[in-house]
Nucleic acid binder design. Structure first.
Lengths: 150, 150
DNA sequence: TTGTTTGCAAATACTTTGCATATGC
DNA sequence: GCATATGCAAAGTATTTGCAAACAA
């Protein structure tokens, strides 16, 4: 089981390195570490959240590098950017097709996997007018913890 | 036709005034004007966009008041806040159930009305775990103008 | 070696807060 | 008259930019 998990990470790392090469982007230790920390998390971190983590193993890294790196990752398609109504930006290392639920109280974001959501149709008028690149369902509400806390 | 249009606006204004009263919120000329400008627009304005407009008929209004007012409107439920990945916040005077398409190039937001989208089901695991308050579909892509401009 | 990346610092953008004055109710 | 709202200014947070030194290729 452990082996499979590692295999998955190795695979992602290889893919990551390939994408960097494709984009003429250098493989620095900072970038590698930031990438590893990002895919290691499921809390959809902001730059600061990730900076705090990365600093632990790489104390000299700057907030700035983490931020620029995440934006670069987003641009070259190795990271996602979560939709929402507030600040700061929240990133997503999970590129498998999925959707989100966000708690309006604690701002927690939870991944939702749904075949139905993946295949909702694009209305024909839209299909013909725009080029659709992405399609996501966003659920909003109150999570169990916050409901109990009331 | 013109009459119907005005009637719709009158209706909204009445509803707006009622909601303000319910929330113990005073009806100031600024608020009234900001509300009118907001429902008069379909470009999902940011505070600044709306401030520019409001200033034309009310030159002494401050950016600050516009911003605070929009946030208040959101809180009492007379305005929506558009989901997205960037800044600044974009508001929405249209409270009819609808969804959005956003152009990744020019950031334009277009309303989408779809019965199918309005009725997508909530996955049972989610239904049982969280209280769902809102459910929207977000499409992203390239609009006609931006495609031609390439 | 060469062009990119980093870390730092400063600048900008966006949002929020505090407070005296003005104003709706 | 009283409590809230406004306008202003300042502070706070988030994001972006410029640049010299460091580094991957």
């Amino acid at each position: 089981m452990q082996v499979f998990q590692n295999k998955g990470i190795e695979k992602k790392l290889d893919r990551f390195k390939a994408i960097c090469k494709d984009h003429g982007i250098k493989l620095t230790p900072q970038r590698l570490l930031i990438y590893e920390e990002l895919i290691n998390q499921d809390e959809h971190p902001s730059t600061d959240m990730l900076y705090q983590r990365v600093k632990e193993t790489f104390p000299t890294v700057s907030f700035d590098t983490v931020n620029r790196t995440l934006l670069t990752f987003y641009k070259i398609g190795v990271a996602g950017l979560v939709e929402g109504t507030g600040n700061p930006k929240r990133f997503d290392g999970n590129l498998d097709k999925h959707h989100h639920f966000q708690c309006v109280k604690c701002k927690k974001i939870v991944d939702i996997y749904s075949d139905v959501y993946d295949h909702i149709p694009v209305p024909p008028e839209i299909q013909n007018t725009f080029t659709i690149l992405n399609k996501t369902v966003h659920l909003e509400g109150i999570c169990t913890e916050c409901r109990q806390r009331e």
